[in-house]
Design a binder for these strands. Structure first.
Length: 348
DNA sequence: AACGCGGGGGA
DNA sequence: TCCCCAGCGTT
């Protein structure tokens, strides 16, 4: 018995009774599918009830003012779904005479309907043999077949769609799709999957190799953080004030200059009015020169670096700060941009 | 190919 | 906190 037959069997015995499962009305199914995009069933359910109640047909929906749609959508998030629904409802009213299409090739052209939703509506409303691939399906397939290709890479998306197509029960596409998703949501969950009662665990690669926690693989979206570094050049005779960096941040244990990091909203000439800065540097300090800002790009940080040359010395040396002779700078590991600035400044 | 778009729930 | 949720449109 293949995975699909097993899961359909499990589904029929364990499925939740959800209102959109009791109809083949493409409009109602569309309504539910849009609401459920990136949204848990429990969260979307009351919204579905309110929409289906207020707008029983696509003609009702198409006649609604956008304000009403968005008001009813309030609190559900991703509000472009609501706006796109209205456009689509109006188009269906005009071009399809108020009859919601059920064919994948027609659905995919509508605003707010992508591959997943087109496959869902066409299979649920007309038993068209289209395999859905949503977050649940990615997870079930990745675990069962032990695939570590990232699900959000272009290659991975293509691979999982193909695999979903191969697994699809062409005789029962609607049941198959429902089963895959219900199984992923109820049993093959992201965390703590219920492998103990899983009907397909004996064929599951992730179960057999104890890899459920590491599958599916998802590429991290490297979030780039913007940081604003004001580096201070402070000298005393032939010495310059340096800082040895800590363990945790970028450039760990390397050397740089005394640093004032801000959120980017502080004008450089006002830095020394900040209370905590004032406390360290006191009043015997004056700005001699402010260099133009340099953008320094790291893998997950963008640094906006500004060098400020000062006259005078700070009142309190902070941990890690020390004066050293300019001759000594070549021996210390420093971030390149900082080294270059100091080198140019002292012309060595 | 990468990013913005929301709010909620679970670990 | 971070991750994920019946994804899609834009750039």
């Amino acid at each position: 018995m293949n995975i699909s037959a097993e899961l359909i069997g499990w589904y029929e015995a364990n499925k939740r009774d959800l209102p959109w499962r009791n109809t083949t009305d493409a409009y109602i199914i569309w309504l539910s599918e849009i609401i459920l995009q990136q949204t848990r069933v429990e969260q979307g359910l009351p919204y579905f009830e309110r929409f289906a109640d207020k707008y029983p047909t696509v003609s009702h929906f198409a006649a609604a003012p956008e304000d009403d749609i968005l008001r009813l959508w309030q609190g559900l998030g991703y509000y472009s779904r609501g706006r796109n629904m209205l456009k689509t409802a109006q188009l269906v009213q005009q071009h399809y005479n108020g009859v919601f299409p059920t064919a994948y090739e027609q659905l995919i052209k509508l605003k707010g309907i992508g591959e997943y939703t087109a496959a869902a509506i066409s299979s649920f409303s007309a038993n068209e043999a289209r395999a859905v691939v949503d977050g649940n399906v990615y997870r079930v397939l990745a675990r069962y077949f032990g695939i570590d290709e990232p699900i959000n890479s272009p290659k991975g998306k293509k691979l999982f769609q193909q695999l979903a197509n191969e697994v699809l029960d062409h005789e029962r596409p609607a049941q198959h799709n429902q089963a895959m998703m219900e199984f992923g949501a109820m049993l093959c969950k992201p965390k703590n999957p219920a492998c103990g009662i899983c009907p397909i665990r004996l064929g599951c690669v992730a179960f057999k190799t104890n890899a459920t926690t590491s599958l599916p693989v998802k590429l991290k979206t490297v979030k780039v953080r913007k940081r604003y570094f004001n580096y201070l050049l402070i000298t005393e005779g032939d010495k310059v004030l340096l800082n040895k960096r800590g363990e945790t941040d970028i450039w760990a244990n390397m050397y740089d200059l005394p640093l004032i990091e801000t959120d980017g909203t502080v004008e450089p000439h006002k830095l020394f009015e900040l209370p905590d800065v004032q406390q360290i540097y006191g009043n015997g300090i004056a700005i001699r020169n402010i260099e133009p800002e340099i953008k320094h790009v790291l893998t997950h940080q963008q640094l906006f670096i500004r060098f400020i040359v000062l006259n005078g010395q700070p009142e309190k040396l902070q941990p890690g700060w020390f004066y050293t002779k300019v001759d000594n700078l070549n021996k210390l590991a420093m971030p390149k941009r900082i080294f270059i600035f100091i080198k140019d400044f002292f012309n060595f």
